[in-house]
Structures are given as structure tokens and as C-alpha cells.
Design a protein around this nucleic acid. Structure first.
Length: 285
DNA sequence: AGCTCTTCCTGAAAGC
DNA sequence: TGCTTTCAGGAAGAGC
């Protein structure tokens, strides 16, 4: 599942092959992957030059220079959903199933978007609408201060795990890195966020940044479909402490990792290393 | 406003 | 063995 480290790895890998290059054309094999104005996408991409790539949370933003055929600058926005792959390849590479979009580049290469589960999206918007488009998104995990992080979680009653997944607070964490950050900070995923004390908040703020940096250094976690921009696998799956390890021994205390469901998402944790500091009323049982 | 549930989609895994 | 059912999850939108 592409989360911040996977998206960052893809963006870094694509920069050298895309920035400064011109787009020749675009083919939509599965138009349903496109959100918003499909006609605009078909108009804006051909003949545009790619100025630069940017990541915001789990979104990829391709900034396009203004082609002579259009009045304004535009941006291509890509979200990889949970099985999306965005990669450069030679045109001779056979089309894999679920390849939805092909973008032809002046270099002779192709930029392809493949996404078996189709939770991803592709959209072109005028550059002037970019900030409004992302207005709801929370802060970057590497930019948010501890004070701001604490303020956003204060008095919230939802489980801390659920709020880490909420992109409006902090952007970029998904199920894997939320679980890993909570383990590293020794915080139980079901704990209401507002009950975290200052020390727990500091541990979580640090753990979140440390886990994400380590995952970026390892080029992400290849758990299901994720590959880098060159089609290689990430390496962080070998360093996961709790995610996907239900029943296996905790790497710290050797007790079995458990799994519980919070707001429809599985949470992996160690009951011993991540104790409930106070009794939680869950409303279940 | 805050929180939870549902929906979209496919393939792998579990169940019978 | 082979078919059917269940499950996984990001984020938008509905509902409470």
C-alpha cells in the first residue's frame, strides 16, 4: 500500500526521467481511473513540458509548464490508492493487466499507471486551484512541530490509530506506518488521542518521523503491489515490527502480536509493549 | 464538529 | 478438487 515513504520513493525515482521532459500524448485504457475533467486532461497533457514533481502526503503532483495551446498552467495529480504503480518503461515492455494510462514522452519512454484495485486516481486541474484542492490536507509529518501535533490531537476522543490515518490532521500515514509508529512509541492503538500525555505525544511525534525516514531509506514496504519507479521492490517489509505479524513473537518481548479492528482497519500491536495506560471503554463485549 | 460506517475494486486466501 | 465467500484497504461521502 503506497503510503508516504512509497510515494516519496516513486517521486524521487521519477524526477530524473520526467523533469524537463515533454509529453507527446496520453492514452486512457481505463478512463474510469480519471477523476474530474477528462477532456481537460486530454487537452492539457499533450505537448506540455513537465516542470517538476512534488509529493504532498500520498499525492503526487506533476507541475506542467503552460503549452501554447492553453491559457493557464495545469497540474497532473496522481494518487496511487492501495495498489497503484506509476513507472517509466520502454514502449516494448508488454502491457500488464490493469494498465489504465500510458503517457508518451519525448524521450521515447512511457509513463504508465497500473492499478489492479482501481482505488487510485488521476486528475488534471488548473494550477490556480491547487491550494484549494489540498486545503483540507493536514501537515507534513516532517514539518509539523510537536506543539502543533499535540494541539491537533488534544481533546479528541477517537482512537489514536484512527486519527493517524486521518489525512486532515497529519498527511501521509497509512495502516502500515501508523501501526509501526505506535509500536515504536509504545502506545496502544485504541487509546483515545486526547488521553495521550505530553511524554506519549513526544514519543509518537518522534517515532512517526523516525519510522517514515527509515522506510524512505529502505525505499518503502513492498507488501502487495508496490514497486519503485524502476519496478524494484522496497525493503522495509523485512523491518516491520507489528504490521502483518499477528500471532508472531514481538521483536522486543517475544509475546505474540495481536490484531484488533478500529474503524474498519486492522491494527497490529503488542499488548505487553503497548499497554492501555488506563482502562478504555470500547462499547463492545 | 467529531466520529463511524459504507462504498468503490480485484485478487488472494479461507471455507465448504 | 473446485467453487463460493471473505477479507484487505485510501478516502470521499453519508449518517448519526
Amino acid at each position: 500500500m503506497p503510503e508516504l515513504p512509497e510515494v516519496e520513493t516513486v517521486v524521487q525515482g521519477l524526477r530524473a526521467r520526467l523533469e524537463g521532459r515533454r509529453i507527446l500524448g496520453v492514452s486512457l485504457h481505463q478512463p474510469l481511473i480519471v477523476r474530474g475533467d477528462v477532456a481537460l486532461l486530454r487537452r492539457a497533457l499533450p505537448k506540455s513540458r513537465i516542470e517538476r514533481l512534488e509529493r504532498r502526503g500520498k499525492f503526487i503532483i506533476v507541475h506542467l509548464e503552460k503549452p501554447t495551446s492553453l491559457r493557464a498552467r495545469h497540474c497532473l495529480i496522481v494518487h496511487l490508492g492501495m495498489t497503484g504503480q506509476l513507472f517509466c518503461c520502454r514502449p516494448s515492455l508488454p502491457y500488464e493487466k490493469h494498465t489504465h494510462v500510458t503517457i508518451e514522452l519525448e524521450t521515447g519512454e512511457q509513463l504508465r499507471l497500473r492499478d489492479p484495485r482501481r482505488f487510485g486516481r488521476l486528475e488534471v486541474i488548473p494550477a490556480a486551484r491547487l491550494e484549494a484542492y489540498f486545503a483540507h490536507l493536514g501537515a507534513e509529518p516532517f514539518e509539523i512541530s510537536l506543539a502543533e501535533f499535540a494541539a491537533r490531537l488534544a481533546r479528541r476522543k477517537a482512537p489514536i490509530k484512527s486519527l493517524l490515518l486521518n489525512q486532515d490532521l497529519v498527511r501521509g500515514l497509512g495502516n502500515i506506518y501508523s501501526d509501526e509508529a505506535l509500536f515504536a512509541a509504545r502506545i496502544h492503538p485504541a487509546l483515545p488521542a486526547g488521553r495521550l500525555d505530553v511524554r506519549a505525544l513526544r514519543r509518537l511525534h518522534r517515532a512517526m518521523q523516525r519510522v517514515l525516514r527509515a522506510a524512505i531509506a529502505a525505499e518503502g514496504t513492498s507488501f502487495s503491489d508496490y514497486v519503485t519507479a524502476d519496478g524494484r521492490l522496497g525493503r522495509f517489509q523485512y523491518r516491520l515490527r507489528v504490521y502483518g505479524r499477528e500471532g508472531e513473537p514481538c521483536r522486543r518481548c517475544r509475546r505474540p502480536i495481536r490484531r484488533l479492528v478500529l474503524t474498519g482497519r486492522s491494527s497490529h500491536y503488542c499488548p505487553h509493549c503497548q499497554p492501555r495506560v488506563r482502562r478504555i471503554v470500547t462499547g463492545r463485549h
